[in-house]
């Protein structure tokens, strides 16, 4: 359990940040999620932790949305963000990158890497909620289709559809900004 939480806590924080865009709220969400996992499922087999934790995390994010909807109209607008086709909102500076997959080894590459990261995170935030969840679970958390479907409470076909749409949306958005991965 300790090893699992340690390996997942930073990614979970980033996921929460993508969803709620508030550091304090994201930290609270991760803390609540870890606590719920430990209290309710601490005696489960380790291989069930990723699916259970993602399910708890997504539910905790939704609970946060519900609470803030009641509290503030301003947050309601943010929580209801479901852009249909997120084409260029505010184009960041166009980047010409030759090989961004390698770890940045020079200051210039580090700057490019940071700019690419900013653009990617920005586009991931803009994804529809379900697409973002499916994409991050499949490709960042390294969960298989069945695990992702179980965590999201939907069919495996839906997961594949969400992932495919998210991937194409990200590719199109990044390409429009001149970013090549």
């Amino acid at each position: 359990m300790s090893h699992f939480l340690e390996s997942v806590e930073r990614r979970a924080f980033k996921q929460a940040m993508f969803a709620v865009r508030d550091e304090e709220a994201a930290l609270d969400i991760v803390q609540d999620s870890m606590l719920k996992l430990a209290e309710k499922y601490g005696n489960h087999p380790c291989d069930e932790f990723p699916m259970l934790f993602q399910r708890i995390l997504q539910n905790t994010i939704r609970d946060y949305y519900r609470r803030t909807k009641v509290r503030s109209m301003w947050t309601t607008v943010l929580s209801a963000l479901t852009p249909d086709n997120e084409e260029d909102g505010d184009p960041l500076e166009t980047l010409e990158t030759e090989d961004t997959s390698n770890l940045a080894s020079t200051p210039e590459k580090q700057v490019l890497q940071a700019q690419t990261l900013t653009a990617i995170e920005d586009e991931i935030r803009k994804l529809p909620t379900r697409q973002r969840e499916a994409f991050l679970m499949r490709y960042w958390e390294d969960m298989d289709v069945a695990e992702t479907a179980a965590a999201m409470g939907c069919s495996e076909g839906s997961v594949k559809t969400h992932c495919s749409r998210a991937t194409h949306a990200l590719a199109a958005a990044l390409s429009a900004k001149g970013i090549k991965l």
């Binding site: 990614r11 980033k14 930290l27 770890l103 990261l117 499949r138 490709y139 960042w140």
Partner: peptide
């Protein structure tokens, strides 16, 4: 493509402030 995105996102984990890491 997803693998490249994953690499970049993992790179971004290093930028989380130390104070946030301590709270996590």
């Amino acid at each position: 493509f997803a693998y490249r995105i994953r690499q970049t996102l993992n790179y971004g984990l290093q930028d989380i402030p130390p104070a946030t890491c301590r709270r996590l």
